[in-house]
Design a protein around this nucleic acid. Sequence first.
DNA 1: ATCTTTCCCACCTAGGTGTGAACC
DNA 2: ATGGTTCACACCTAGGTGGGAAAG
Lengths: 223, 223
Amino acid sequence: AALGRPHPPVPSQSFTSLQTEEGLDDDPKVNLDSKKLWTEFHKMGTEMVITKSGRRMFPAFKVRVDGLLETAKYILLMDIVAVDDCRYKFHNSRWVVAGKADPEMPKRMYIHPESPSKGEQWMSKPVAFHKLKLTNNISDKHGFTILNSMHKYQPRFHIVRANDIMKLPYSTFQTYVFPETEFIAVTAYQNEKGKVDLDCADSDDSCEQPSTSDLFYSPRELV
Amino acid sequence: AALGRPHPPVPSQSFTSLQTEEGLDDDPKVNLDSKKLWTEFHKMGTEMVITKSGRRMFPAFKVRVDGLLETAKYILLMDIVAVDDCRYKFHNSRWVVAGKADPEMPKRMYIHPESPSKGEQWMSKPVAFHKLKLTNNISDKHGFTILNSMHKYQPRFHIVRANDIMKLPYSTFQTYVFPETEFIAVTAYQNEKGKVDLDCADSDDSCEQPSTSDLFYSPRELV
DNA sequence: ATCTTTCCCACCTAGGTGTGAACC
DNA sequence: ATGGTTCACACCTAGGTGGGAAAG
């Protein structure tokens, strides 16, 4: 997708098996780690902090992979794509649409640093993407993922069967999307502010509110 | 070498070229990093702390490798072997022989965690052995290198051309020894103590001393 | 008494985190 | 004033370090 147009997110989880060129079957299953945590955040609109110097994701994006061929080599990667064409704002304790999206920077494919590795190794332990960093600095030179603040994004996870990173562009990707990992990029957490702004008189939406005990949380308190 | 007998240290640096089975030549050159620091320590008898919980080496053992085949795969490793059959003691600011050595524990080959990698990658940056740890705990379960306190040791560096760690035992090793990295294992630094014990009346050796400015240093102050 | 080891602890470092004040 | 961003900073963690007290 060219600059200025969001990448279309893959709408469903493609848990289909793949007939490979060697004639051997793999049938990857992917499970999101800390699904409960993600779901809890998702209910109230996950916010992901982005900074000039780069910020890791929280919650962490971590998956457990199964169904690979033990001895075949795989490259695992992730990227983060825009969900829609909207800019958002946090108003009266809710995220609401606030106009058209800003142009998107080209998105980097983040290759898991242990790639390529054998299926055996990927399946032996959860696969974490610790080192992926988010930034709002459009001049970033570290290779971090550049996002627009106040825009909505969807992380995606990819499995590629390949021996060599050089062959990546010509390889078949299997893409997995976990809708509960959707988030809005922010430069400072917004949810906390809701504490002092409960007035919903100006809101176009209904004023139905989650219970305060669910609503007001410090981002880390759910852990 | 069986328990109780020290490994014979390789006396010279074998910078010879190797004709490989594929008929391609490599001609590895290995340079010790921080040679000046090692030499400075060596002059006064390098001491390396070993602890129950495991201690990294200081100075760090780091080498620059050149002359490998870019595309061939190599395993890089190091081990630490006993230099002689003696136990040492620190007396009157000097290390002196103090009897016969204790039995040596079998020595672990420490495989550099990035092994196996292509020659290209090994040559692109210094190869450090950060993670190698020394211990005096003969029941160690971490796989650390077990040494005897008050004994003299020689680190060795090895290059093996091999695709697979499984093939290591059957492969040809090229071994490099840097005499200035020899050290005596201690559970607590001894040199500092020299400050208050300059009397050499009891020493069998000549009382010739290095200048005091060279002699009395805190291990880290040379950096 | 001496020598060596063990243990504990304060310190340091590197890196990541939230917060609030300042800025635009 | 508002909304959003930037920045400095205190805090936390994990892990490594030397030194001194105590033990063997």
